[in-house]
Amino acid sequence: MTKLHVLGMTCSHCVGFVTEELESVPGVEAVVVDLPTGTVTLTTTRQIPSSELRTAVEAAGYEVADLSGQ
């Protein structure tokens, strides 16, 4: 399990954009976003490099402040 702290999400549309981009990363099985805290929890089938996760979040228009569980 991997947790990200994503900056800039303010609404359900933001959650949708981030979820969609992260679900497109090979190996990501599930994405759970806690909007009030900006915490995104990923269930994965492989060790995903943090650079891939950052790229996906940035493609959605947001910034990763912290990664844990890598």
Results as ranks from 00 to 15, higher is better:
43 T>S: 12
41 T>F: 05
56 A>Q: 06
24 S>E: 13
59 A>T: 06
61 G>T: 04
6 V>P: 06
18 V>A: 00
16 G>T: 03
35 L>P: 08
32 V>D: 13
62 Y>M: 06
31 V>Q: 09
50 S>D: 12
1 M>A: 14
13 H>W: 09
7 L>V: 14
3 K>I: 07
48 I>H: 07
38 G>C: 05
41 T>H: 04
9 M>P: 02
36 P>N: 13
16 G>H: 00
30 A>Q: 08
28 V>F: 04
56 A>V: 06
45 T>H: 02
1 M>Y: 10
51 S>Q: 12
47 Q>N: 11
4 L>C: 09
67 L>Y: 09
8 G>R: 09
37 T>I: 13
66 D>L: 15
29 E>T: 03
45 T>L: 03
46 R>Q: 15
42 L>W: 02
49 P>C: 05
45 T>Q: 13
6 V>W: 01
48 I>E: 05
52 E>P: 07
1 M>S: 15
1 M>F: 14
38 G>F: 08
22 L>I: 02
68 S>D: 12
38 G>L: 14
34 D>M: 09
6 V>I: 11
54 R>S: 14
29 E>D: 14
24 S>V: 01
68 S>E: 15
16 G>E: 01
61 G>L: 08
36 P>V: 04
18 V>F: 00
9 M>D: 09
15 V>G: 10
31 V>G: 06
50 S>M: 02
23 E>R: 05
53 L>A: 08
49 P>N: 09
37 T>D: 07
59 A>D: 12
66 D>K: 13
32 V>C: 01
27 G>S: 11
39 T>W: 14
5 H>D: 10
47 Q>H: 11
47 Q>I: 05
24 S>D: 14
45 T>E: 12
20 E>W: 00
6 V>H: 00
44 T>A: 13
55 T>V: 08
49 P>A: 13
25 V>S: 04
49 P>Q: 03
28 V>D: 03
62 Y>F: 15
24 S>P: 01
13 H>N: 10
53 L>F: 07
49 P>I: 02
61 G>Y: 08
26 P>A: 10
61 G>K: 01
40 V>W: 01
39 T>F: 14
70 Q>M: 11
47 Q>A: 13
69 G>N: 10
46 R>V: 14
53 L>Y: 05
38 G>V: 08
42 L>A: 03
11 C>K: 00
56 A>M: 09
29 E>H: 09
51 S>E: 15
22 L>Y: 04
40 V>S: 07
21 E>W: 01
50 S>V: 10
5 H>C: 07
66 D>C: 04
25 V>G: 01
70 Q>S: 13
69 G>A: 05
17 F>G: 09
49 P>V: 06
68 S>T: 15
4 L>K: 11
14 C>T: 00
59 A>E: 04
59 A>Y: 02
36 P>Y: 02
34 D>T: 12
33 V>D: 01
28 V>P: 07
23 E>Y: 04
48 I>V: 08
2 T>K: 14
58 E>V: 07
18 V>H: 00
68 S>P: 00
44 T>C: 12
7 L>E: 15
37 T>F: 03
